[in-house]
Each structure stands twice: as C-alpha cells, then as structure tokens.
C-alpha cells in the first residue's frame, strides 16, 4: 500500500466540542450496529416460539443487560439527533462555524432531555417491561 495520509487524524487537533460530537456520532453508530445483533436475536426468539422467547427475555431482563439496553437507547437518541444535524449540513445549511457551534449545544440539550424521558418511559414505570 502506498504511504499516504489516512483520514481522519484524531490526535493532531485541539479537542473541541464539535469534534467530540463528531467522534460520538461514529462511536454511537458502531454501538448501534452491535445492537442490531441483539435485535436479530430478539426477533428470531419471537419467531422460534414461547419457550425460546422466554429464555431470551429472561437473559435481557438481567440487571446488567438492562443497563446495556439503556445505553443503546441513549446511543440511538444521540445518533438520531446528530444524524439530522449531519443531513442539514449535507443539504447545505448550518455549516458556518458559529451555526455549527450553536447546533452542537442545541443537540446536546435535546439529546439529554429526550434520552432521559425515553429511559424513564421504557424502564421506570413498571420495572417489568423488559
């Protein structure tokens, strides 16, 4: 392979929060990709019958796994919000530096609020919705 610059150089820039968000967008995407394996397992369990489904949900109902599921929920909310921000950029809007910084702040606040609400709705009311 020719020696040529490989993108992106994550270590040579001063850390800024827009850069942290970009990094988080990728990591949350990779985490969600791993979560797809779980989605497939869940659907296959449901297709295999009540016994298989009960085994898988018993596994997912375990406390540690509930934390992982909560993490995926937060990752989804973040990736969704940041993805819309990226689509706006692709359409040519909001790419100036002050605009990008403002949308970064809006994104973080929105993600925290929506993720907190969803985690509450999914995990708190009954505690048995697992």
């Amino acid at each position: 392979m020719p020696v040529r610059p490989l993108s992106p150089h994550a270590t040579v820039y001063r850390l800024g929060y827009t850069m942290v968000l970009s990094f988080l967008h990728r990591s949350s995407g990779v985490a969600l990709a791993a979560g797809l394996l779980l989605l497939a397992c869940w659907l296959m369990a449901a297709a295999s019958g009540p016994a298989a489904y009960a085994r898988v949900t018993a596994f997912l109902g375990h406390g540690l796994f509930q934390v992982v599921l909560g993490g995926w929920l937060v990752a989804f909310v973040f990736h969704f919000g940041a993805g819309i921000r990226h689509l706006c950029w692709d359409a040519g809007y909001g790419f100036e530096r002050p605009q990008a910084r403002r949308s970064a702040r809006v994104l973080v606040v929105a993600v925290v609020l929506v993720a907190a609400l969803l985690v509450y709705l999914f995990f708190c009311p009954a505690g048995v919705r697992s």
């Binding site: 449901a46 009540p50 989804f76 993805g83 819309i84 990226h86 689509l87 999914f122 919705r129």
Partner: peptide
C-alpha cells in the same frame, strides 16, 4: 439515513406503545 428518520421513529414509538414485552403482545 433519510428513510431511517421515520422508520426508526416508528419502531421506537411502537415499542413504547406495546402493552408489554411478553410473547403474545410482541408476536
């Protein structure tokens, strides 16, 4: 990505609206 905006939103809200995650409700 554009297609996933409505699709993933629908999936998430559908999960929220499920009466429960038991076998009968899910299937």
């Amino acid at each position: 990505a554009v297609a996933l905006v409505p699709l993933s939103l629908w999936f998430l809200l559908s999960l929220l609206a499920l009466p429960g995650f038991d076998y009968a409700s899910v299937t």
